[in-house]
Structure formats: structure tokens, C-alpha cells
Simulated scan of single mutants.
Amino acid sequence: MMKHILFTATLLLLSNAMTAQNDITQPELKGHIEFLSSDKNAGRYPGTKANKRVVKYIIKEFKKSGITPYGNSYKQGFTARLRVKKDVAPRPDVNTWNVIGYIEGNDPVLKDEFIVLGAHYDHLGMGGPSSKSDHEGIHNGADDNASGTSALLEIGEKIAANRHLLKRSVLLLAFGAEEQGLLGSKYFTENPVVPLSQIKLMINMDMVGRLNNENHVYMGGAGTFPGGVELMKSLGEPLGLTVFAHAGSVGGSDHVSFYKKDISVMGIHTGGHPQYHTTEDTIDLINFPGQEKVCNYIYSALMKVATTDYKMEFIRQD
């Protein structure tokens, strides 16, 4: 009898562990944002020890989820020129990285096509020319863009757990130096690890942690692939989300670098707020139930394209 009880308990523990791996959970989202937006990481500024620490963290999480590098390394290094205030002498260029994870599809033909899911992990450090605060201090960047990075890690974990469903392959891209002028995504699109012609869609997450009471999700670029606007609106309904899917309005974050290379894109966010680029963008303002909902929405959109032969072609928007 005791052996039976122990066996049952073991099965339950294993089942719970598998569920944790398969599901996007609020505790995991919170854990990622707590680390990324901590004072220790001092605003995740390029060229700092904190930047290196965050890169190591992302790689560790990819490995934990069974997400492999594409090629020999998760890291794609590049040099970033840092923005400075007007009339301030240029600062020395610094070294930073994109972090690239890979989940291979299963279809013998479609696995050579890629869906990119991306988010930038850097922020403003102590402020600088992009800050909207009237004083210097740690810009924790909980929503911008620890929220997008945490979403990347959690959605990536769920994709990896369901990799057997994939037809197309998935690249997970954590971009460096976005706040310095989209430098990480620009570097990737100039030095891609796969031919750009094989990237069929880039989904970018930048500020996805502040879902409002009306459950509004916003995106630009939904019209850059066939049926995108209709698809994205329909996927929001089961989750109780009201989706503002603009066919164009492509601008403002790393997906722009891909759009300029004639790649279909979507830039997804939960809206602006007064704490944007200030020292007040902190974890206590993150809506974790809302972020979980948004992550599941983005997961369902990616899987709709990655697990089927959904027709993909680039449609330019003015």
C-alpha cells in the first residue's frame, strides 16, 4: 500500500513538473522580470557587467528549456555605438550580443522556413539621452523590455515542449542595444544566421507587461502577410482580448529592421504609459495575469503559422 502511495505521489510530481515546462506561468514570468529589472542589473546597459550577466541568464534559460543554438554558439557578438546627449563627446564603442535560440521544425520542406520570435533585453542603464526622467537613476525597464524578454523565455519554453507539432522552424532572438538605435536587429539582418529569404515572419514583443483593464493588445504590421489582420483579431477573442491589429504602422522597435528587408512582421505591445523611459518603470506595475494572457495569445499566433502550411508572402504596407 505504501509503495502504491509513493508511486502515485511520484507520478503527480512528474506531472506537475511537465506542466510547469509546458505552460506559461505567472510565477515564471515574474521570476524573469525580477531578475532582469533588478537594481543589480542597473538598467541592462550595453557594455556593462550587467549586460553580460543578462546574456548568461538568457542562455541558461534556453538550455533549461531544451532550446539549442543555431550553429556553435548562442551568442552573436557586435559592436554598439552608444547614444549621448547633444554636445557631449562620443563614448567608446562597446561589445554586446544578440542571443539566438533554435527549435527545428519537422516537415522535410517547411523546416527550412523560419519564424522569428524576438524581444530586446537591453534598457537605458542610468538614463542618458533617451530618458524622460528629470533625474539620473536606475532605469529598471520592467515593461521596457524585461516584459518582452520574459515573454520570449516563457513562450520559447512552451514551443520547445511542443516541438513535435512544428512544421516550420523557430528562431528565438533576444536583441542587444535596441535602445541605442535598433542596433542588434540591424546587425542580425545584415549578418543573418539563415538566409533572409527563408525567414517568413518576425514577431516582435516590446512592452507586453501592462495589459489594461479593457484587455487591449496593439500591433503594427499585421497586414504584411496574407490574412494577418483577420487572423490576429480572431485569435484574441477566445482569450478575451480586444486586438487592435493595424495592417501597417510598422515602426518603433526591432521588427523594423526585418521589414526593411522585405520580411513580414508584427510588432506587439500592450500600450504606452507615463513610466516609459523613466525610473518609475518598475515591476510593481506589471500586470502578470494580463501578461500571461498576452503570451498565450502570441504563442497561438506563432503556432498557427509554424505548425501549418499557412501561406506566407511579404506584403508591403505604406
Results as ranks from 00 to 15, higher is better:
M266P: 00
D262N: 15
H139F: 05
V88N: 05
S185W: 06
M207T: 14
L165W: 13
E104Y: 05
V265L: 04
F314R: 10
Y121T: 03
L285E: 10
A50E: 12
T282L: 02
H139V: 03
E104M: 09
R53V: 06
Q76H: 03
A160H: 10
G118W: 04
T25I: 08
A119L: 05
N51W: 05
Q26R: 11
N145P: 01
K158W: 04
G176P: 04
L29Q: 10
G31V: 00
E237W: 03
N162M: 08
L6Q: 13
L182I: 13
E313W: 00
P129D: 11
T308Y: 12
M1I: 13
F314T: 05
Q275A: 13
Y57S: 04
Q317N: 05
N212K: 06
V256L: 11
G240A: 09
E230T: 14
G105Q: 12
N16V: 08
E237D: 09
I263F: 04
Y299L: 15
P46G: 10
F288H: 10
T279I: 14
G118S: 13
E34A: 13
G220I: 01
M312S: 06
L165D: 14
Q76L: 04
R83P: 00
I24E: 12
L165I: 13
I24W: 11
M1R: 14
V54F: 00
G240K: 10
V243K: 04
N41A: 00
Y310R: 10
K261M: 03
G137Y: 11
M2H: 13
K132C: 01
I268F: 00
E179W: 04
I159G: 07
H123T: 02
T189G: 04
R316S: 13
K111V: 11
S147D: 04
N162R: 14
Y218G: 01
Y102N: 06
L235Y: 08
I103V: 15
L11T: 12
Y121P: 00
L13P: 01
